[in-house]
Simulated assay, not measured.
Amino acid sequence: IKLHSINTLDMLLIAVSIITSSYYIYLFFMNQGNTWKYKLTLCVFIITIISLIIRLIYVNKSINNSHNTETVVDLRDLYEGKIKKTDRLVILEDQAVNYDL
């Protein structure tokens, strides 16, 4: 859940929202608008949409925060100790350079 990218929870929420909306439309066209199934489907759909919106806000907020810090570093900077201490994942850049460690 703490990952910034799409994960299984996001896919599950989208699947539940599609299924509940389809079933809600089916119940509407079958004239079952006053049944408990109709009301339960509407409640589940609303809860799912609210959860998706909260998740979208969380992902956008964390993506905006991660753009401020640079996590891609060169191996020479790591070797020389120029990297600040961070709790984030550090990715080493792989490119051809003219120096040799």
Rank of each mutant, 00 (worst) to 15 (best):
Ser5Asp: 04
Ser5Ile: 02
Ser5Gln: 04
Ile6Tyr: 14
Ile6Val: 10
Asn7Ala: 11
Asn7Asp: 15
Thr8Glu: 12
Thr8Gly: 00
Leu9Ala: 01
Leu9Trp: 02
Asp10Asn: 06
Asp10Val: 01
Asp10Leu: 02
Asp10Tyr: 09
Met11Tyr: 10
Met11Asp: 10
Met11Gln: 15
Met11Arg: 06
Met11Pro: 00
Leu12Phe: 12
Leu12Tyr: 10
Leu12Pro: 01
Leu12Ser: 11
Leu12Lys: 09
Leu13Ala: 04
Ile14Leu: 07
Ile14Trp: 04
Ile14Tyr: 07
Ala15Asp: 14
Ala15Thr: 03
Val16Tyr: 07
Ser17Asn: 03
Ile18Gln: 11
Ile18Tyr: 13
Ile18Gly: 07
Ile18Phe: 14
Ile19Val: 09
Ile19Arg: 14
Thr20Tyr: 10
Thr20Arg: 04
Thr20Gly: 04
Thr20Lys: 06
Thr20Asp: 04
Thr20Met: 10
Ser22Trp: 06
Ser22Gln: 13
Ser22Ile: 06
Ser22Tyr: 12
Tyr23Pro: 00
Tyr24Cys: 03
Tyr26Glu: 05
Leu27Ile: 02
Leu27Thr: 05
Phe28Ala: 09
Phe28Glu: 08
Phe29Glu: 13
Met30Arg: 15
Met30Trp: 09
Asn31Ile: 03
Gln32Asp: 13
Gln32Gly: 09
Gln32Cys: 15
Gly33Lys: 14
Gly33Gln: 12
Thr35Gly: 07
Thr35His: 04
Trp36Thr: 03
Lys37Gln: 15
Lys37Tyr: 14
Tyr38Asp: 01
Tyr38Asn: 00
Lys39Ser: 15
Lys39Asp: 13
Lys39Ile: 13
Thr41Trp: 09
Thr41Val: 11
Thr41Ile: 10
Leu42His: 08
Leu42Val: 05
Phe45Cys: 02
Phe45Asp: 00
Phe45Met: 02
Phe45Thr: 00
Ile46Gln: 06
Ile46Asp: 02
Ile46Thr: 11
Ile46Ala: 11
Ile47Val: 14
Thr48Gly: 14
Ile49Arg: 07
Ile49Glu: 02
Ile50Gly: 08
Ile50Asn: 11
Ser51Thr: 00
Leu52Pro: 02
Leu52Asp: 02
Ile53Trp: 15
Ile53Phe: 15
Ile53Gln: 00
Ile54Lys: 15
Ile54Met: 13
Ile54Pro: 02
Arg55Asn: 08
Arg55Val: 01
Leu56Ala: 10
Tyr58His: 09
Tyr58Gln: 08
Val59Gly: 03
Val59Asn: 04
Val59Cys: 06
Val59Ala: 05
Val59Phe: 05
Asn60Thr: 01
Asn60Gln: 02
Asn60Pro: 01
Lys61Pro: 00
Ser62Ile: 08
Ser62Val: 04
Ile63Pro: 00
Asn64Ser: 14
Asn64Met: 11
Asn64Pro: 00
Asn65Gln: 15
Asn65Arg: 11
Asn65Val: 10
Asn65Glu: 15
Ser66Thr: 06
Ser66Asp: 13
His67Ala: 13
Thr69Lys: 06
Glu70Gln: 11
Glu70Thr: 04
Thr71Trp: 10
Thr71Ser: 15
Val72Ser: 05
Val72Cys: 07
Asp74Gly: 03
Asp74Met: 10
Asp74Gln: 09
Asp74Pro: 01
Leu75Ile: 08
Leu75Asp: 09
Leu75Thr: 01
Arg76Val: 00
Arg76Lys: 08
Asp77Ile: 01
Asp77Lys: 01
Leu78Met: 08
Tyr79Val: 05
Tyr79Met: 05
Glu80Pro: 02
Glu80Leu: 12
Glu80Phe: 11
Gly81Ile: 04
Gly81Tyr: 05
Lys82Ser: 06
Lys84Phe: 04
Lys85Gly: 02
